[in-house]
Design a binder for these strands. Structure first.
Lengths: 238, 238
DNA sequence: CGTAGGCTTGAAAAGCGTCAATAGGAGTGG
DNA sequence: CCACTCCTATTGACGCTTTTCAAGCCTACG
């Protein structure tokens, strides 16, 4: 978490100590376990220590839309620090550990220590940027491009989170979950992935393991430009 | 703007004075004028004083996705305060006035005055919540529901911005722009709107003027629940 | 009165969804 | 160790929503 927050912002040792002194308790949650439910009044924010989680919303016909995917080191639901009732659910994708931090402590540290507050604000801004890209992905790209885009985003974010190389990774989601993230159906996700494989853009030893032979080709197929992730450290204002 | 920022947060008189003392210059922009372009290095944030603006992204095939719509009093591009390069464009929908405020001044006031910083952070969190709803709208709802949802959101937001009643308003967008906001085509937007009209959910004296006979019926058709707008003042933490 | 931008409508095609059936793999209990 | 079950992946056939292409219309505005 420290590493993630410090990505754009340099902290003093005192800031670091204050962060590490935050009260929290660690929970291990199973796959599918809800961390927060839509309409809940949440009192904690959480940091993912291991495993994967998603944020999702349910629409009228019972369909689900995944609005973001989170991995090791990321703060989920920072919005719970200022917004009381949750407008979406947070759910584990895989078994994993999360650290729960009381809302008041998040707020306190954010306002007592400007560098930390700034890093958190920045984090929510990057989050919002990813949301915008997802709106465009789901709204204006065809199935093939959407899936390729998601695979690229995953690839880059896993690498940034320190989980391996960008050309080879394990997808922590089922095809139904991929469908919920891309606004497609599981069946069509399956066909589309097989299409990408048939065209040599990816290889899969098994359904979940993604090997990207030519990253640039996949990025082109996915209309992927990592700018929206704001990974460039010069991208944040000092 | 003051009113909007103060929606959730109470400011002291000193805070208000500081806000009003911010340096800015006012510009009047025509319809279609770009305020910020994707990839620009932005140096200002802006507040809309009159008229409407949208934020949008362009995807590979040249299609455009509108990711949000903004009206009087809203701060657009607060993210430019901390993120250097713009991941999307901001463009006027109608002729209108905007106040441009230098990035450094935004940052200074946000960190010198906690109440203001908190209100701004809150603003970005609500923004993000709306993005999430849009992902769900575009990803998991059919054309009719999407359009009805957008009409409801507009209706509520116009009222909150102090621009009339929720049952009767002028849409500031063409059907092509509606299409870009909902991830549809202009042709299909047209058919869908006429469908809503034929079913008595809306009335239109002319193509742009929306009259909502039975708000609840339209909200039901649009799967609309205003929770994601976080309008409840108790919805923010004090 | 003419032009341009936006709206409306039709017909056909495409992409994606639905339904349904099968296959594979991991875990469980006998 | 095997049978059983559940969950996930895969595939086919079919249908529907939405797109595409194309044409005509309306209205505001010069």
């Amino acid at each position: 978490m420290l590493r993630k927050l410090e990505y754009h912002e340099r902290f003093s040792q005192a800031d670091r100590d204050a962060l590490l002194a935050l009260p929290f308790h660690i929970r291990t949650y199973d796959r599918h376990h809800y961390v927060v439910r839509e309409r809940d009044v949440a009192t904690h924010s959480c940091v993912i220590l291991s495993g994967f989680a998603v944020r999702s919303k349910i629409v009228c016909n019972g369909n689900r839309q995944i609005v973001s995917i989170h991995m090791k080191g990321e703060m989920v639901d920072l919005q719970n620090s200022l917004l009381k009732v949750a407008d979406h659910s947070v759910q584990m994708l895989t078994t994993g550990k999360v650290a729960l931090i009381p809302r008041e402590d998040i707020l306190r540290i954010a306002f007592e220590r400007p560098a930390i507050g700034r890093a958190m604000w920045l984090d929510t801004l990057v989050d919002a940027s990813i949301f915008r890209e997802w709106i465009a992905n789901v709204g204006r790209r065809d199935a093939r491009t959407r899936i390729a885009h998601l695979l690229c985003e995953f690839s880059i974010r896993l690498k940034v989170a320190g989980m391996g190389v960008e050309t080879d990774y394990e997808l922590p989601m089922t095809q139904e979950q991929l469908a919920d993230a891309t606004g497609l159906t599981a069946v069509h996700v399956n066909r589309t992935i097989k299409g990408l494989e048939a065209d040599g853009l990816i290889d899969r030893a098994n359904p979940r393991s993604i090997y990207i032979g030519d990253w640039r080709k996949l990025a082109a197929a996915g209309d992927f430009d990592s700018g929206y992730l704001h990974l460039d450290r010069g991208d944040a204002v000092n």
